[in-house]
């Protein structure tokens, strides 16, 4: 089998075979289907953006306001400055970038050994994979007690290290698939020429899977950026990631729809920008991460 990792799953421009819907009727149905789907999947995003620029008097009107007369940006200043959105951006950034970076180093090395040396056999692989599936609530109490015993609740360290429990398995799982697809001949010739294993890995293997590394890191970053359950358990007031801040905006007396939507938009913006900049990698990472298994 050739290395699937080396080319995009989306061959653009060439005529596409039609596995199911033949004929012009099928094409029409496809266009309609995609159009309807786009409206459905994008309308709530529009609703979020439009709510984020509505004045309070338009948050709960009946009928709802779909196009505000004027743009009201105070929700954004409220979200960023009164509700700590700015600090949330910084904290989310620190935690997500650190957890992703550390996870990439540890996870990629582990994936390589799992793929090439089959260390730990299928049990270690399955163990790592199954951690990805564990409901966070299952380890919530011991996890909380562990970090508070170390006096590290509500710190960057606690969140970053705890995020590694799903970041590493994810990266290891996805990267293992890429490494398995990579022909061993490349490394072998390097080894024959006297390179150490580390050299061979760094100089020969990694450059060959660079697109995969980008895609995997991107997805890991998105997961870390969005993480909620663990943040709720391990954060108080000093380290406040954006998903953590959001529910605190649900007050006893009033739901601040505009502020919440602004905060949501602020939180979504970085991942959406990155997703579009790296869309080629994102799509590929998703597909290969999932298509590969074991």
């Amino acid at each position: 089998m050739t290395s699937t990792a080396a080319h995009s799953p989306f061959p653009s421009g060439r005529a596409v075979p039609t596995p199911v819907t033949g004929g012009r009727g099928g094409l029409l149905a496809s266009v309609v289907g995609v159009a309807v789907g786009s409206v459905f999947f994008l309308f709530p995003i529009y609703w979020m953006l439009v709510t984020s620029v509505k004045p309070p008097s338009e948050w709960l009107t009946s009928p709802p306001v779909f196009i505000p007369d004027r743009l009201y940006f105070q929700n954004y200043t409220d979200a960023l400055f009164n509700w700590g959105g700015l600090k949330g951006l910084v904290d989310s950034g620190v935690v997500a970038v650190s957890a992703t970076a550390i996870g990439m180093v540890l996870g990629t090395f582990a994936a390589y050994s799992l793929a090439r040396f089959r260390i730990g056999g299928t049990n270690l692989s399955f163990f790592i994979l199954s951690l990805l599936f564990m409901p966070p609530v299952a380890i919530g109490i011991p996890m909380f007690l562990f970090w508070s015993a170390l006096g590290l609740v509500d710190t960057y360290i606690a969140l970053i290290v705890q995020y590694l429990t799903f970041t590493i398995p994810f990266i290891a799982w996805v990267m293992k698939g890429f490494f398995e697809d990579l022909p061993v001949d490349l490394e072998e010739s390097a080894l024959v020429n006297g390179a150490s294993r580390l050299r061979a890995f760094v100089d020969i293997v990694l450059p060959n899977v660079r697109p995969a590394l980008v895609a995997t890191a991107l997805l890991a970053f998105i997961f870390n950026w969005n993480e909620f359950s663990i943040a709720v358990l391990l954060s108080r007031g000093r380290v406040t990631t954006l998903p953590f801040i959001l529910p605190t905006m649900m007050e006893s007396h009033y739901v601040l729809w505009g502020d919440i939507a602004a905060m949501a938009a602020v939180g979504a913006l970085p991942v959406v920008i990155i997703a579009f900049l790296l869309q080629r990698y994102l799509v590929r990472g998703l597909s290969f991460g999932a298509i590969r298994s074991e």
């Binding site: 421009g13 060439r14 596409v16 496809s30 995609v34 786009s38 994008l42 995003i45 997703a275 799509v283």
Partner: peptide, 24 residues
Amino acid sequence: LALYRLPRYQQFIATLLLIPSILS
């Protein structure tokens, strides 16, 4: 299957549609 039939802008539409999945 529908998207598969529409190679033009496919990647862009796919990424656009993906926004819900990358939100928290």
